[in-house]
Amino acid sequence: MSERDHETRDTLSSQYRSDVPVWNRLSYPTQRKIRTTGLYGILSVILVTILFPLYWMFITSVRPQREVQTRNPTVLPTELTLENYESLFLVSDFPLYLQNSVTVVIGVVIVTTTLATLGGYGLTRFNIPYQNTFARGILFGYMFPSILLAIPMYILWSDIGLINSYIGLIFAETALALPFSLWIMWKFFQTVPESLEESARVSGASRFRTMVDIALPIAKPGIVAVGIFSFAISWNEYTLPRILMPDADSYVITTGIQAFQQQNTVMWTEIMGATFLASLPAFLFVYAFQKYLLAGFDPTDIG
């Protein structure tokens, strides 16, 4: 091959390489490193965006009043104090609101988990006409926000004497959490092999015994997921407690926070402290049980 042919080949090769996108010229390990770095960068921005309100609530709750009321608040406080939390627990009615919230949440979690577990098991194990249509139609009730149900519930609860009643509020919030919880357990029990229960029944076990000893242990992730979901619904609910529990002694945390906003004064440090404490339990519960929560929403990922 002549020298001129070599020059022509090198020119064409250089032109070809210049037409190739820069990304395709990189090696696979380099491309993978860039993708990973970009993904972690995006996730970091999302995480900071989510956690910054929680950080700001906490920082504001431990600032002195004079620093909160300044025109140019700083991200980092110049002085820290626990006087706001002392006022929150020793002077205000926040402990009463916390006690009321815990009472309602425990009731909602127990009732919702029990009904969803029994209902989901029954839908998968008994021959019910149109059971699939009924199970899918359950989600239709989950699409209604609590504000649409509050007024009809108030009228009904007034007629049966359940206003300012913890039982009435527990039933009302259970109605919000139950449709989706029942759908979760229905999908979950479909993954539990019926052959295991049939083998136990052939050995003489009753239906109840097979459910308790075989189905429920396998369905534990789904039950935990329903418990966490109903906890989050009840703990964060504002509309129903505000309408069904109007007396100040019956306030839960979400409605009791408004007591720190008086006619001429807004107690920002107490509001931020109460809001931070109200946000913390739900965050910690979901973080601690996230494995069961994800497994409950997607039964195929249990492991």
Rank of each mutant, 00 (worst) to 15 (best):
Met153Arg: 03
Gln263Asp: 14
Trp56Arg: 11
Gly303Trp: 10
Thr37Glu: 12
Val22Pro: 09
Thr49Glu: 12
Leu162Lys: 00
Ile233Phe: 02
Thr36Val: 15
Gly137Ser: 02
Asn24Glu: 14
Gly122Met: 07
Pro241Met: 00
Leu82Ser: 11
Tyr130Asp: 10
Thr8Tyr: 14
Ser92Glu: 02
Pro77Val: 03
Glu173Ser: 06
Gly119Ile: 04
Gln262Leu: 14
Ala248Gly: 14
Arg242Val: 11
Leu240His: 00
Ala232Phe: 09
Pro95Arg: 00
Thr74Ile: 09
Phe144Arg: 02
Ile184Phe: 07
Glu194Thr: 15
Leu139Arg: 04
Val102Lys: 03
Thr124Cys: 09
Val226Phe: 06
Thr117Trp: 04
Met1Glu: 12
Pro299His: 05
Ala288Leu: 14
Arg9Asn: 11
Tyr287His: 13
Leu26Thr: 07
Gly107Leu: 01
Tyr28Thr: 13
Thr275Met: 08
Pro299Thr: 07
Thr275Asn: 10
Arg201Gln: 10
Ala177Leu: 00
Ala205Ile: 04
Thr265Lys: 11
Ile257Phe: 07
Ala205Asp: 10
Met185Gly: 02
Ile167Leu: 13
Pro152Cys: 08
Phe171Gln: 00
Leu118Ser: 06
Tyr97Met: 09
Asp247Glu: 15
Ile42Gly: 01
Asp301Ala: 15
Gly256Lys: 01
Ile214Pro: 01
Tyr40Ser: 07
Thr269Trp: 09
Ile46Glu: 05
Val68Ile: 13
Glu237Phe: 07
Thr30Tyr: 11
Ala205Tyr: 07
Tyr251Lys: 14
Gly161Ser: 01
Arg136His: 13
Ile155Glu: 10
Met272Gln: 10
Ala282Thr: 14
Trp23Lys: 07
Tyr97Ala: 08
Val75Ala: 14
Leu178Ser: 04
Trp183Ile: 00
Tyr121Gly: 07
Tyr287Met: 14
Thr174Val: 07
Glu3Ser: 14
Glu173Tyr: 04
Ile128Gln: 06
Ser146Gly: 04
Asp301Cys: 15
Asp213Ser: 12
Leu196Phe: 10
Pro246Glu: 08
Pro221Met: 03
Thr49Cys: 13
Arg136Lys: 15
Phe126Val: 03
Leu169Val: 05
Phe126His: 06
Thr254Met: 09
Gln99His: 15
Asn100Met: 08
Ser206Cys: 06
Gly296Pro: 03
Ala225Glu: 00
Val75Lys: 08
Leu43Glu: 09
Arg4Lys: 15
Val202Thr: 12
Leu118Asn: 02
Arg17Met: 13
Tyr121Lys: 08
Thr112Trp: 01
Phe260Ala: 02
Ala225Gly: 00
Ala135Arg: 00
Gly168Thr: 07
Phe189His: 01
Pro95Ala: 06
Thr114His: 07
Ala259Met: 10
Phe208Gly: 10
Asn84Arg: 09
Pro29Thr: 03
Thr74Ser: 12
Trp235Gly: 00
Val192Pro: 03
Trp235His: 04
Tyr238Pro: 00
Leu118Lys: 03
Thr36Ile: 13
Val48Tyr: 09
Trp56Cys: 02
Glu79Met: 12
Ala278Asn: 04
Leu96Pro: 05
Asp19Ile: 14
Thr124Met: 09
Leu280Cys: 03
Tyr121Thr: 03
Trp186Lys: 05
Ile271Asp: 00
Asp19Gln: 15
Arg242Cys: 09
Val105Arg: 04
Asp159Gly: 10
Val111Pro: 01
Arg207Pro: 08
Asn84Cys: 02
Leu82Arg: 06
Ile214Phe: 05
Thr174Glu: 07
Asp159Val: 13
Ile271Ser: 04
Thr11Pro: 03
Glu3Asp: 12
